Computed example of a mutant assay.
Amino acid sequence: MEVAADWARRGPRLVVLTRGAEGSDAHWASGGRHRVPAHPVRVVDTIGAGDAFMAGLLAGLLSAGLLGTGGPAGDCARPRTAVPCRPRWPAPRRSPRGSRL
């Protein structure tokens, strides 16, 4: 985690570490850190988990006005408004033959 904080101080305004069942940690260039616990689920398959996490993170940052031209792009003054976003829906399930439903 010290490495992520160091990265954030060196250029990016936000560095996020995913920690599987332990949630995620956000490190802000300003020195702030915020831990978000994982939503408990029964893991069936981890394929696409990183993509789903990134989509949720970007959606949260966008809705908080931290991305794009419509808001304070890159302004990390309100980090807690975006990072706590996590899905509240059930994880994808597999059919008996292994294909996703």
Results as ranks from 00 to 15, higher is better:
Ala55Phe: 11
Gly32Arg: 07
Pro87Met: 05
Trp89Phe: 13
Gly71Lys: 00
Cys76Gly: 15
Gly32Asn: 01
Pro96Gln: 06
Ala5Asn: 03
Asp75Ile: 04
Pro12Gln: 05
Gly20Glu: 05
Ser99Ala: 14
Val83Cys: 04
Arg94Asn: 03
Gly11Ser: 06
Trp28Ala: 01
Ala73Lys: 00
Ser95Ala: 15
Gly68Ser: 11
Thr69Ser: 14
Arg78Phe: 12
Cys85Glu: 05
Leu14Met: 11
Ala82His: 05
Ser63Gln: 14
Pro72Trp: 05
Val83Lys: 00
Cys76Asn: 12
Asp45Lys: 02
Pro90Trp: 05
His27Tyr: 15
Arg33Lys: 11
Ala4Ser: 15
Ala59Arg: 09
Arg35Gly: 03
Ala38Gln: 05
Arg13Thr: 10
Phe53Met: 05
Val36Ala: 06
Gly50Phe: 12
Cys85Gly: 09
Pro12Lys: 01
Pro79Gln: 05
Pro79Met: 05
Ala91Cys: 09
Met1Leu: 15
Ala21Gly: 14
Arg35Gln: 11
Val16Thr: 08
Ala29Asn: 07
Glu2Ser: 14
Ile47Phe: 12
Arg88Ile: 02
Ile47Asn: 11
Val44Asp: 00
Leu67Ile: 05
Ser95Pro: 00
Arg10Leu: 08
Ala52Ile: 00
Arg93Ser: 14
His39Asn: 05
His34Asp: 04
Val3Cys: 07
Gly68Leu: 12
Leu66Glu: 05
Ala29Asp: 05
Leu57Ile: 03
Arg86His: 12
Pro40Cys: 09
Ala77Asp: 14
Arg100Asn: 02
Asp45Thr: 06
Gly23His: 07
Asp51Ala: 04
Gly31Phe: 00
His27Ala: 09
Leu67Lys: 01
Arg97Ala: 14
Arg93Cys: 08
Ala49Lys: 01
Leu57Cys: 06
Gly50Trp: 12
Val16Cys: 11
Arg33Val: 00
Leu66Met: 15
Gly56Asp: 06
Ser30Val: 07
Pro92Leu: 10
Ala38Asp: 09
Ala55Ile: 07
Pro37Gly: 12
Gly68Asp: 11
Ala64Pro: 04
Leu61Asp: 06
Thr81Asp: 15
Ser63Lys: 12
Pro12His: 06
Trp7Asp: 08
Arg78Asn: 13
Gly56Cys: 08
Gly98Gln: 10
Ala8Gly: 06
Leu67Asp: 04
Ala73Arg: 04
Arg97Gly: 13
Thr46Tyr: 02
Ala21Leu: 12
Val15Pro: 02
Leu61Lys: 00
Leu67Phe: 10
Leu61Glu: 03
Gly11Asn: 08
Gly65Glu: 06
Gly50Asp: 10
Val3Tyr: 13
Gly48Thr: 01
